[in-house]
Design a protein around this nucleic acid. Sequence first.
DNA 1: GACGATACGGAACGCGCGCCCCGCTTGTCA
DNA 2: TGACAAGCGGGGCGCGCGTTCCGTATCGTC
Lengths: 182, 182
Amino acid sequence: MRADAQRNRARVLAAATEAFAAEGLAVPLDEIARRAGVGAGTVYRHFPTKEALFEAVMLDRITRLTEYAKTLAEAEDPGAAFFEFLRRMVFGAASSKDLIDALIGQELSGAGLIVAAKRDLHQAGAELLTRAQRASAVRADIGGTELMTLLSGTTLALQQNPADGEIVFAVLRDGLRAQIPT
Amino acid sequence: MRADAQRNRARVLAAATEAFAAEGLAVPLDEIARRAGVGAGTVYRHFPTKEALFEAVMLDRITRLTEYAKTLAEAEDPGAAFFEFLRRMVFGAASSKDLIDALIGQELSGAGLIVAAKRDLHQAGAELLTRAQRASAVRADIGGTELMTLLSGTTLALQQNPADGEIVFAVLRDGLRAQIPT
DNA sequence: GACGATACGGAACGCGCGCCCCGCTTGTCA
DNA sequence: TGACAAGCGGGGCGCGCGTTCCGTATCGTC
């Protein structure tokens, strides 16, 4: 690959990451190209479609989260590790509109790369959850899938009112800590 | 107003309510017209713009919720009334994609009718909340605005996985019940 | 330094959708 | 029942945006 091509690819990716985070999937591709200082054609040489570009951005983001989750899985205190993960998920995504689209939109079935990444993240999250539950730090009547649903919702909520972050997180935390009366 | 005009207006409103709930704001106006059995021009005779139609639909929905909240405000048990309201909000909106757009989208500033309706709903919800808090049924460190943020999030979450409704609601409920350790 | 290949830019195309327009239909009232 | 207004349908326009195409510029190599 030619040097300038490599440089442009990186620029596009950076601009796309920023633009998608700020505006969501709705940002026009021309706008991304403009921010990257390239033409629209160049974007298409590196990514066959706008959706592919979006997926590349999300893939990076999701992978990073998964790695973090795996790190936490080896912490001593399972409860603390779990809630730390929760906090990162909630606040990390609160200011990026792209996640909304990634989570809500069912149109990104994609080549399967994202699906796999998502599955990994879910798995890592579930691992943290199970450990915390074994330590009695989290209620037993919730599974990995439902946890992700909750997380999506919390993220989406903070999208609108980032200022309410702490209280929303507190309610989620306390709700997860609650022991079921059976 | 002529009889057929009245009938057509009602048909459009009904079709729009259904279509918006199923598909969200993204549903093409022609589709709504088709479902209503009228032409696109007819829709525009009754509602000046697509957004106006959407607002009319949402106005109805929001007003209904507010009335319900006001009814509950006179119940004997403030805690039970509050959680009943919560349940209605969460599950009532879980299967309608239009609320997503109404809640997320900031583009519907509108003529102010919706804004007023929203404010009324918030006020009624806040009243229920305050009463429940005075009865020590709900944590004290949360206000009306933050409650609405939480509710939006929960609603949005269930949009994707309606099956997780009960557990999500349970976590929200228990999180709200939790007393703060100070 | 010249030449071939690779990559670039941005004008142009097609499509979907909101909205308007106008010839025709239908309801209403005398 | 006739005449006029009110209302209707759907073709068409304009715009925004994703995508493509191709003449031009740039890189790497001999």
